[in-house]
Nucleic acid binder design. Structure first.
Lengths: 240, 240
DNA sequence: TATGTGTATATTGTATACAGATTCCTAGCA
DNA sequence: TGCTAGGAATCTGTATACAATATACACATA
């Protein structure tokens, strides 16, 4: 009894969780494309699971705002919209600022680690997925000291939404959003002990990303509207 | 054709949504008590529905952080904890401040409405459920101009969690948390055009509620710990 | 008495079945 | 040609079935 190798229980991951992850990863790459609807039976055979855990995963994603469901018609991927970016980014900015204020002053080791991550981000050439990952890692490292689980969790979820937009932007425009300079400025402020300044720079960082996305999105929306083909409208979902 | 009464489609509410609402309302009153586990079959016959939509509702509530699920063992209501209050309230405060800043200056009609709601809140005697509702209505009215759907939605969800604590506090201590004076101060600031001051007062409002809850919760936790009966531990859930 | 083992029961996680809506397609007609 | 009616096929929402796992309890053993 009590051998060391039995100490850790074996990990069990419900199918619904695995499916959820797969779907989310896909959507971040635009795979079930924004606006497209989802066929449960088809998807379930594709994934090799029954409709039950698949539906559980889909409903979970509805709850997080990636999908929507209209009664009787099923699930569809929420379309991208300028309005959502305008709504979303200020929330993320505010919460990251809150998290930064809730963190202890970073140690020099942490600052070094942040600089390293930023250097790697700078060295990324064309691989925008890697860039996204690295940027996310930087922010997560910056705020990891916050000791507010719910806050970090909320931020993480909201940033998945942001990723949906940023990856779409990079994929379609071919451009990469790199915040290397802004990260450096934030680090400088932190090194000088200027937390308030760092917070404002962090806020600005999100504002700048927004300024990349919005013009592009407006252009995209303009490109699709004029043809004036019966634009499919998405009605309100349930969950009263 | 096109009579006025046919204009609006009849509303269809999936069972999962109705169940979800019932469960949530119950939990806010402490009915499935914090910490207690849930028997799916039993509950499903109680509600007169099958396990499928019930599970969908339960999983939804897991996603929102009211329940948790451990693989193979099922669902349980998350216990109340001081840590959650310490995590939660600053987030709500920050987001309400953000929403206030995102709102246009309130018209005098709105200010009047807010004063009315506050007066009704003041007149409430013992009915703490009514007090909670009225307080919630006041905040919602204050921020209703924000034009940021996701922000308002996020706030609403987080406040359900706060309600779980506040209703428990009122039920157990018999005391009622009334923020009438604080609301008045906020209104004064708004009437004077002092948005920044109003924001700080709003932030303070949440801080004060926290200061009611935390001592009580610590006391409750202290009352339960010392007996040192094998405290049931809750393990991490899934959703990787 | 305390501790471990085997078996019965209960409960969860997933799969399948079924009824009711919705969508799609075609034929008929203006 | 364009539009409408209607019925087949598809799909969703919910119920039920089934297998795997967990819990409870009696019994054996030290």
């Amino acid at each position: 009894m009590s051998q060391s190798w039995t100490a850790r229980p074996i990990e069990r991951v419900p199918i619904r969780s695995q499916v959820r992850r797969r779907l989310l990863e896909g959507m971040l790459r635009g795979d079930p494309a924004p606006g497209s609807s989802i066929n449960e039976s088809g998807l379930s055979v594709l994934l090799g699971v029954s409709r039950t855990p698949l539906r559980e995963a889909l409903l979970n994603l509805v709850g997080e705002g990636f999908l929507s469901a209209t009664p009787g018609k099923g699930f569809y991927v929420l379309p991208l919209s300028t309005k959502e970016v305008e709504d979303l980014y200020p929330i993320i900015a505010a919460l990251e600022v809150l998290a930064l204020h809730a963190s202890p002053s970073p140690t020099s080791a942490q600052l070094k680690r942040l600089a390293e991550i930023n250097a790697e981000l700078e060295s990324v050439r064309d691989d925008w997925e890697a860039a996204l990952r690295q940027d996310e890692l930087w922010h997560q490292t910056l705020l990891s000291g916050a000791n507010n689980r719910r806050l970090l969790e909320t931020i993480r979820t909201l940033k998945y939404h942001a990723q949906r937009y940023e990856s779409a932007y990079m994929r379609h425009s071919g451009r990469i959003i790199r915040s290397v300079e802004q990260h450096r400025a934030i680090l400088r402020a932190l090194r000088d002990g200027d937390r308030e300044g760092a917070a404002r720079l962090l806020e600005a960082n999100w504002k700048i990303s927004q300024d990349f996305l919005l013009p592009w999105l407006r252009e995209e929306e303009a490109r699709k509207e004029p043809p004036s083909r019966k634009a499919m409208k998405y009605e309100r979902s349930d969950e009263g």
